[in-house]
Amino acid sequence: MKKIYFLCTGNSCRSQMAEGYARSILSPDNFEVESAGVETHGLNANAVTVMAEDGVDISNHYSKLIDLDYFNAADLIITLCGDAKDKCPMLPPQSQSLHWPLSDPAQATGTVEEQLQEFRKVRDEIKKLITGLNDYFH
């Protein structure tokens, strides 16, 4: 069983969407999936909304701090911090790692619909990247 850990700054949007897609796309017989942040910012309601639009329910997720035991046991750590100002954690040398430099949809401005459009754009990028993880392990 491969352990995947999605890490972000506040575990409110990008890493939560990645965890949701990974749990729905990747086989639970082959993958254990968690997400966390270096801070907890709470689950972003817009992330819940756009994931529900694509049939993935993350409404029961909550913002979590990094669990060092899981972190150190992870086979693959994926950081989703896009901006240089984000505080991505140092990765353990024994784990494989990927960095997906996605923009932070929580920083989107404009109308509610314009903000949701930014969330949808990031959601769709994450879904494509998660789908590619099956190939990563083969």
Rank of each mutant, 00 (worst) to 15 (best):
A45E: 15
T131E: 15
Y70N: 00
A84W: 06
D69C: 02
V122Q: 06
V122E: 01
G82H: 02
Y70Q: 01
Q107T: 13
T109G: 14
Q115I: 15
N134V: 14
W100S: 13
P93E: 13
V38Y: 02
N72D: 14
T109W: 05
F137K: 10
P101A: 14
A18Y: 10
F137P: 11
M1V: 12
P101I: 04
D135L: 11
A22W: 01
S24R: 13
D57T: 10
K2Q: 13
K3F: 01
A52L: 15
H61A: 11
Q96L: 10
M17K: 12
E114Y: 03
N60C: 09
E118R: 13
A47R: 00
A18I: 03
A47L: 05
S103E: 15
L116N: 09
N72I: 02
P28D: 06
E114G: 08
P93H: 12
E118S: 10
G10Y: 00
T9Q: 13
Q96F: 05
L43T: 01
I126A: 09
R120P: 11
A73D: 15
Y21C: 02
L43Y: 01
A18K: 03
L43M: 07
I126F: 13
F6K: 05
I130F: 12
N60V: 09
E34W: 11
I78L: 03
G37I: 04
R123T: 12
L133C: 04
D135T: 11
R123L: 11
K3D: 07
Y62N: 12
Y70A: 00
E125I: 13
K3R: 05
T40E: 12
Y21Q: 01
A108N: 07
L102S: 05
L133M: 05
S59R: 01
N30Q: 14
I66M: 11
V56H: 07
L91W: 03
I130Q: 01
S95V: 03
D124I: 07
E34D: 08
G82I: 09
H41E: 00
D86P: 05
F31G: 09
S27G: 03
Y62T: 14
N72G: 06
C81H: 00
D135W: 00
C81T: 00
A45Q: 15
T9I: 02
A18E: 02
L43S: 03
E118C: 10
E53G: 12
K128G: 06
K121A: 12
L76D: 09
G42T: 10
D57H: 11
S97I: 04
S59L: 10
T111I: 08
A45D: 13
